[in-house]
């Protein structure tokens, strides 16, 4: 897989990174708890302990890598797709979400186990830190290219907050998906489709700008 490319600054053993991640997920899911120590984990895996530290400083760090890997994998795949460059901004974001949901589906048990204790979406759990910044980076670059295409309205002050708003939206999607019981998580697809469409209608030039414009006018004339 092409994933190794993205994390190349740390890596000189790409294959064993994947092995580390899947071994850790496997352990967590079959035992329901973390290995007692990095030492024991490496021993069972038959590798030296420092090979682990070359990649992550702790299990917390490893979990971060796993989550970030989900996003990086999807983004790499999207950029490798010839059609993707021609998509509108909305379709780019949709394609990203559908790709991510497909990726997460493969690791659903892990995701459920990790997010089990999360109830408030406003607090970012430690393992999602890298995931969050990867996500915001993707959204920011996509929205910026959207602005130059004219899909997205430039609104001083407000548009700096867009990545943050999208992060809240991402939280909504994850929680929705976590609770979704429909076959093939079809309802989550609908939720993504409808909410992203609405979001981009608000981001585009139109209703909101006219409302602000009109509000400003009323404010000015009322004085």
């Amino acid at each position: 897989m092409k994933t190794a490319k993205k994390t190349s600054k740390k890596s000189n053993a790409g294959a064993s990174q994947d092995a580390l991640r899947s071994a850790y997920m496997d352990y967590l899911l079959t035992h329901g708890a973390r290995p007692v120590s990095v030492y024991k984990f490496c021993q069972d895996l038959g590798i030296a302990e420092d090979a682990f530290y070359a990649y992550a400083g702790s299990f917390d760090g490893l979990e971060q890598h796993i989550w970030t890997g989900f996003i990086d994998h999807v983004v790499d795949r999207l950029h490798g797709d010839v059609e993707f460059a021609g998509f509108t901004t909305r379709d780019k974001v949709l394609a990203f979400y559908y790709g991510l949901l497909e990726e997460l589906k493969r690791h659903r048990s892990f995701v459920l186990l990790q997010t089990d204790h999360v109830s408030k979406p406003s607090v970012v759990p430690y393992y999602l830190k890298g995931f969050k910044s990867s996500f915001e980076r993707f959204i920011e670059s996509t929205l910026n290219s959207g602005k130059s295409r004219g899909d997205i309205a430039t609104r001083p002050f407000i548009d700096k907050r867009y990545p943050k708003l999208f992060w809240l939206h991402m939280g909504f999607i994850l929680v929705f998906w976590r609770n979704d019981n429909s076959a093939d998580f079809e309802q989550t697809d609908v939720a993504v489709e409808k909410s992203v469409t609405l979001a981009f209608e608000l981001l585009g030039k139109g209703a909101v700008d006219s409302a602000i414009d009109f509000g400003k006018f009323l404010y000015q004339t009322a004085r």
Partner: peptide, 16 residues
């Protein structure tokens, strides 16, 4: 009379 399906969702339906 909802908005039409986005192309990414069409692709996803095919892939499923």
């Amino acid at each position: 009379s909802a908005p039409p399906l986005s192309y990414p969702l069409v692709v996803r339906t095919f892939q499923k």
